Amino acid sequence: MAPVSGGEATRRLLPFALMVFLGYLTVGLPLAVLPVEVHDVLGFGPVTVGWVMAVQSITTLLTRQFGGMVTDTRGPRPAVLAGTLLCAAASLVYGASVWARCPPAPALALLIAGRAVLGLGESLLITGVLAWAIGTVGPRYAGRAMVWVGIAMFGAIGIGGPLGTALMRMGGFGQVALAASILPLLACAQAAGMPPVAPHHGRRLAFFRVVGLIWPYGVSLALSTVGFGTMFAFLGLDYAARGWPGAPFGLTAFGIAYIAARLVFGGLPDRLGGRRVAVATIPLQTAGLVVLWLAPSPWIALAGCAIVGAGYSLTFPALGVEAARHVPPQNRGAAMGAYVAFVDIGLGLTGPLAGAVAGRFGYPAAFLFAAGASAWALISVLRLPAAQMVGHPET
């Protein structure tokens, strides 16, 4: 593939960002209201809330290998098409918990089933889009591809939080589920009209061999993911317990800061190397979580959410560009699936562990727990050999 300029690479990546944004609104719309539905409407406790939120990540983790295999053998576009359709189906399962007027236990079972279907859909969607985008612009701009995919993901989360809350107020959780089932179909239609990228031929490494090549970067990513996972799962309940208004805007503040940091500093991982970037961003995220732990008012907590967003923003591409360059092109889908699986590990552990901390010590303590995980992530990054954390070669 002929090299492209930075501006041309960005132009080619924008349709992928829109595709992810539409598909990921299935995650963003219910994010602020699902814990409330489980806790306040169905009457379950914070540990159950944590497990419900974790099911998606656990399922995504278990299906990353499948998503990478589909992407590498069938091509990224079939993976994305299947992923968007599954995301739409997951939201219909959510809606069934309301539309069928189920008692609390069956309704909870349907919500858990919907989270599981969404986990598989997200696995196929994000793995496919990442491989498709990198295949379109070339490995030289792998970091930029991850930046734009992340902007779309967290833009959907930032907008989806207040939008889902507004829909819940207008028509209940069923209205949220209906909206979340339609938007991925628009992403599916867009993907169907975009030119595909053919799978790479050649000998493919076994999936767990790929995991072995990238695991040092993935462990640091998993630990840093605990912070925003805790914030997403328990911010709304923390606000409600304190009698504070405006919890959905915490997700918006996170999303705005996340996107702003990527737009301004998104080229740094490709230019400076991941270790130098992550050593700066992970402490910032840790500071934001400490602010959330100590926040005396909703406005201070809102600032903490923004600091977490700015800090977490570049950690994913900073470590991801290095993970991607450690595997051959024919294993790019598996590498992206394995790398993103560490996000799932972080989120999967977050729900039950942070839920247990919140249940015993109160919701603010969950943010202190997450700050400790972020500090551990920084130690892990500092222990990575600097020689491995260099920028991509010009390819």
Rank of each mutant, 00 (worst) to 15 (best):
L235W: 05
L163G: 07
L163T: 13
D238E: 12
I151A: 06
V211E: 06
G227L: 11
Y217V: 08
Y217E: 09
Y239A: 08
A198V: 11
L167Y: 06
A222C: 09
F228Q: 13
M153N: 10
V197T: 15
G155T: 01
F234Q: 03
V147R: 01
L167D: 01
M153S: 15
L185Q: 08
R203H: 13
L185E: 00
G160F: 01
W244I: 09
V176S: 05
L178C: 08
A152V: 01
A191Y: 00
A241H: 09
R204D: 06
A240L: 10
A152W: 00
A222T: 07
G202I: 13
I182A: 14
C188N: 11
S181L: 03
V210H: 05
A152P: 02
G243F: 03
V147H: 01
A233W: 05
A180H: 05
G229T: 12
F228M: 13
A166Q: 08
G227A: 14
I182R: 06
M168I: 05
A233I: 08
F173H: 05
M153I: 14
F207S: 04
M168E: 15
G171K: 03
G171V: 11
T165I: 03
F154L: 01
L183D: 00
G161T: 12
S220W: 06
I157K: 03
G174V: 02
L213S: 12
T230D: 09
A240N: 04
I214Y: 08
V149A: 15
V197W: 03
A177T: 08
F234E: 05
V219W: 07
C188K: 07
V210P: 02
L178P: 02
T230V: 15
G172V: 09
M231D: 06
G174L: 01
A166E: 09
I182N: 06
A189S: 09
L223G: 06
I214E: 11
Y239F: 10
T165F: 02
A179N: 02
S181F: 06
A233V: 13
Y239K: 00
P216K: 06
A187I: 03
W244C: 05
G202A: 10
T230M: 04
V147G: 04
A241V: 06
A240V: 04
A240H: 07
G143Q: 05
I182G: 10
V226E: 03
V149S: 12
A222M: 15
I182P: 02
R242H: 08
A179Y: 03
G218H: 09
S181P: 01
